[in-house]
C-alpha cells in the first residue's frame, strides 16, 4: 500500500522528535498512578487509560503533526504526487495510531497483571470502541489543525477537545456521580461513547446510544475535514 511509504517516513520522524516521544511514551506512564489513586479496580483503570491514550497519543500528537507538515509544505508536496487525499492523511497518522495501539496493549498487560481484571465478555465492543475512537480522533485532529497556525498554537487550539474529553467523559469519575441532566450532555462528548463501548465489553451496558453518538462524531469529523482542512499554509 502506497500510503505506508509516508507512514514509514513519519515513523522515522517520530523517533527523531523528542517532544512527540515524550508525549506518547512518558506522559501516559505518569498518568497511571493518578488513575490508580482514583480507582484501583482493573477495568475502570483500563478504560481511563484507553481514553487518555486516544486523546494524547492520537489527537494531540496528530494536531501537531498535521500542522508541522503543512507549515513545512510537506502536505502540499505530497499532494502533487500520486497519493489521494485520504491516503496522505492515513499515511501521516499511521505512526501515532500504531504507537497508541501499542500503548493500549501495554497498559492492558500492566493492568491485567497488577489487578484482578477479568477478560472482557464482549470483546467486539472493545474493538469497535477503540477503532471508532481512533478514526474519530484522527478526523478531529485534522479538523483542529485547520484552525492551528503554528505547532506552538496547538497547545491552545487543542484545549477545548482535551478539556472536554479529559474532564467531561468520565475519565476520572464515573458518570453516575453527576446529575442526570448533566450526564446526558456529557454523553454527547466525543470521548464518552468510546469509553461507554469499551466499558460495555465488560459490564453489558447499553451500546446503541454510544454507537450512534460515535457515528455522528465520525460523520461530523469527516465533514469538517472536507470543508476546512488546509493543505498549504496561509500566506
Amino acid at each position: 500500500m502506497r500510503a505506508v511509504a509516508v507512514g514509514q517516513a513519519e515513523l522515522k520522524l517520530f523517533w527523531r522528535n523528542r517532544t512527540a516521544l515524550f508525549n506518547s511514551l512518558v506522559l501516559p506512564l505518569l498518568i497511571v498512578p493518578a488513575l490508580m489513586a482514583v480507582d484501583a479496580d482493573g477495568e475502570p483503570l483500563l478504560v481511563g487509560l484507553v481514553g487518555f491514550v486516544l486523546v494524547m497519543a492520537v489527537y494531540y500528537n496528530l494536531v501537531t503533526t498535521f500542522v508541522a507538515r503543512r507549515e513545512e509544505l510537506v502536505l502540499k508536496r505530497l499532494r502533487v504526487g500520486e497519493l489521494t487525499d485520504p491516503e496522505i492523511l492515513f499515511g501521516a497518522s499511521l505512526p501515532s495510531v500504531v504507537v497508541a495501539l501499542g500503548q493500549m496493549a501495554l497498559f492492558a498487560v500492566i493492568v491485567g497483571v497488577a489487578t484482578d481484571a477479568s477478560l472482557p465478555s464482549r470483546p467486539w465492543f472493545l474493538v469497535m470502541g477503540v477503532v471508532g475512537g481512533v478514526v474519530m480522533f484522527v478526523l478531529l485532529a485534522a479538523a483542529s489543525s485547520a484552525f492551528t497556525r503554528t505547532v506552538e498554537m496547538a497547545q491552545v487550539t487543542t484545549l477545548p477537545v482535551l478539556v472536554a474529553c479529559l474532564i467531561g467523559s468520565g475519565l476520572f469519575f464515573p458518570m453516575s456521580v453527576v446529575p442526570e441532566g448533566v450526564a446526558t450532555v456529557l454523553r454527547l462528548l466525543p470521548l464518552t461513547p468510546v469509553l461507554d463501548l469499551v466499558r460495555a465489553s465488560w459490564d453489558d451496558g447499553p451500546v446503541l446510544r454510544p454507537l450512534t453518538v460515535l457515528a455522528v462524531w465520525i460523520g461530523l469529523g469527516t465533514y469538517a475535514v472536507r470543508r476546512w482542512f488546509r493543505w498549504d499554509p496561509r500566506r
Binding site: V6, K12, L13, R16, R69, E72, L73, V74, L75, R77
Partner: peptide, 15 residues
Amino acid sequence: GGFPPDLTVTETTKM
C-alpha cells in the same frame, strides 16, 4: 519544496 527537515536525502527520496 516541502521536505521534513529531519529525514535524510535518501529517506526522502525512498518515501
